[in-house]
Amino acid sequence: MPHTNAYPYQETFERYLHQQELAKPTIAEYRSVLTDLFIFLSNFNAGYQADHRVATLLDRDVEQYLAMLVNQRQVTNGTYNKMLSHINIYFKYLFTHDLIRHYPTLTLKGKSHDELKAPTTKWLHLMPSILKNQQLAFYTRLTLMLSSHYYTISEFLTPGFYQQLNSDNFNADEHAFWQQFQQFIQPLQTRQHSQDLFLKQRLAEDPHLTAAGLHKYLKPDEKLLGFTLTPTRLYQSAVLDFLLQNSNLTEQQISEKLRLDPQSLAYYRQLAMQYRG
């Protein structure tokens, strides 16, 4: 019978691990983690289920798996970080060997014990004062506002995102901030010849701000606000808050509002139930 890989590129990746002189138990550990990851994606991730192409995976897809490890399996901090390390090395190998074009674990970091707790939703109710806070960077405030409208970092850092953003959906406080942001960003847009919203300050061949570049604005503002500004956690807490506050809506209404497929919505509903408990 022909050999079937337990996960994409298993043979070439494990050959690479052997070349790195890793011990057999360590390679077996990689195999176990990656097999588990792709079984999860095959069962619970609609995007991966569509064509089973590893090249289409983004940070949100891996984050969904990592969140499951914490909220359903309740893995320890050490186990979580070790599994993330294995997954990161796998995707780094695929990326550096031109097997994928996106590096989905680039923005994912190992978390402390406190960060493994359910995300806080309190910041959503502080948004009016946050948007008015001139001490916070414009990019920080825009990240928070877009997260509160259920956009992921992968979405709002993608070139052309501004074309799908409808300011008619903003409330009065958001409109006021949006006007201020336009005054801030327009000179940069002119200088960089781009209409996108997250742009580098200095001229560059690619003017778009990266996730790492955005982090440089978010990190200092964490101290001012007193909570983590990791975009993936902001997005997750916004979705959870909506589900907790709108249990009377139909599945279709919630899916349209959050722009979630049924499998992702089921996952967040389960997470919301755990958070409520």
Rank of each mutant, 00 (worst) to 15 (best):
A266F: 04
L142M: 04
F181W: 07
W178P: 01
L144F: 00
G110P: 10
L124G: 08
I254P: 00
L22I: 14
L258K: 03
L271K: 03
R73K: 08
H193P: 08
F177W: 00
Q163E: 13
Q245L: 07
D173H: 06
F44Y: 15
R31Q: 14
D173N: 09
G160K: 06
Y9E: 14
F13S: 08
Y90F: 09
L229Q: 03
H149K: 07
E63F: 12
Q186F: 14
L116S: 02
L225G: 05
E222R: 00
H113P: 11
S255I: 10
I153D: 05
Y9L: 12
F138Y: 05
V239T: 12
T232Y: 13
G226I: 00
P207R: 05
Y162R: 12
F38P: 00
Y103H: 11
Y103T: 04
S85K: 10
T121Y: 11
G160C: 04
H193Y: 10
N71Y: 14
G213C: 09
L116M: 12
S167I: 08
A238P: 04
I130V: 08
D61W: 07
L57K: 11
L142C: 06
V70Q: 05
Q64A: 15
E251P: 01
L214F: 08
A67C: 14
L108T: 14
L165F: 12
M273S: 07
H3T: 13
N5L: 09
D206E: 12
T190Y: 15
Q20T: 09
L199A: 12
T230S: 11
R191F: 04
N43H: 14
T232S: 07
S264M: 09
Y93M: 08
L126K: 13
I185L: 09
L116Q: 12
K92E: 08
A266G: 06
P262I: 01
D196N: 09
E11I: 11
P104N: 03
L165H: 09
T140R: 01
N71M: 13
Y90A: 07
W178R: 02
L144D: 00
M83A: 14
L136K: 00
H86N: 07
I89G: 01
F38Q: 03
N166C: 02
L99D: 10
Y162S: 09
I254M: 05
T105A: 13
S32F: 15
S42T: 15
P8K: 07
I130D: 03
L84N: 08
A6E: 06
L124D: 01
D59W: 01
T250W: 02
N248F: 02
N246D: 12
D196W: 00
E63C: 13
H175Y: 02
D98I: 04
R60S: 13
N166T: 06
M273P: 00
R53Q: 13
V33T: 15
P159G: 07
T210G: 03
Y90V: 01
E115D: 07
K257T: 11
L144W: 00
K117V: 11
K122N: 14
T26S: 10
K117T: 12
T12Q: 13
Q182D: 03
T232K: 14
S42G: 14
S147M: 07
Q74T: 08
L41Q: 01
P159F: 02
F242T: 11
